[in-house]
Amino acid sequence: MNAKDREREMTTQQHQTQYICRIRFARKGSLSYIGHLDLMRTFERAIRRTELPLLHTQGYNPRPVLVFALPLGVGISTESDYVDIAFSVPVPPEQVIREMNRFLPPDLWTVDGVVVPEGTGSVMAAVTSASYRFEAPQILPYVKRALEADSLLVTKISKGETREVDIRPLILMDLTADDAKGEDAVCLLFRAGSRENLRPDLFLSAVTRHFAYDEDAAANCRVTRTGLFTGVFPNYTDLKEI
């Protein structure tokens, strides 16, 4: 049997029971400035530093089984993101949290976790919306005006093609009242996930373009993801409540 066949054999037939923990994590400061792949790698290495029984994929190039709910862009902090981690034996989530917090770099930490029953769908597929906090001087009145508009056109470049896209339908709700920080902050719920997703920087570009919000202030705007949600709006649920 050649290597390729052997690999296929191993992945399809050698089924191992997975014990999955869904871990909520947060990042700030220096760890906000890394991309999604680097974040995955940082998690992988941190778990390898713990003695937790991490499950690896079978085959010739075994990788740990980590599934992130929604990639985080460079420069975005988070208070509430999720990763599913597969173990080869059951591990209490409290132990995962404790161990991981000993071994993660300073600006990245886990908050809490739950055991995911077998047969539960992927955390990635569950995400339908995400909330973000935007912090920048005097941003509130500009965003209020943007939310009153029927459409918000932005320029999107994909596969070398430039298109005008209306992002207004992707903004689901204004959550600012729940997250009061005065005139210098807003909190919004955007559609998110693999099907439709609104990136916070795209929203900011619309606010500067159509409502003349100061570009420099927008460039300095601190963006924090404050939550991930599942379910069809308006019947949406915070992932942490599941």
Binding site: G29, S30, R45, A46, V74, G75, D216
Partner: peptide, 20 residues
């Protein structure tokens, strides 16, 4: 460094430290 300066460069983590 200001957020906008870090966002204006390639691989901003070069300048932030904070490693394990």
């Amino acid at each position: 460094l200001q957020h906008r300066d870090l966002m204006a460069v390639q691989n901003p983590a070069r300048y932030t430290g904070g490693e394990w």
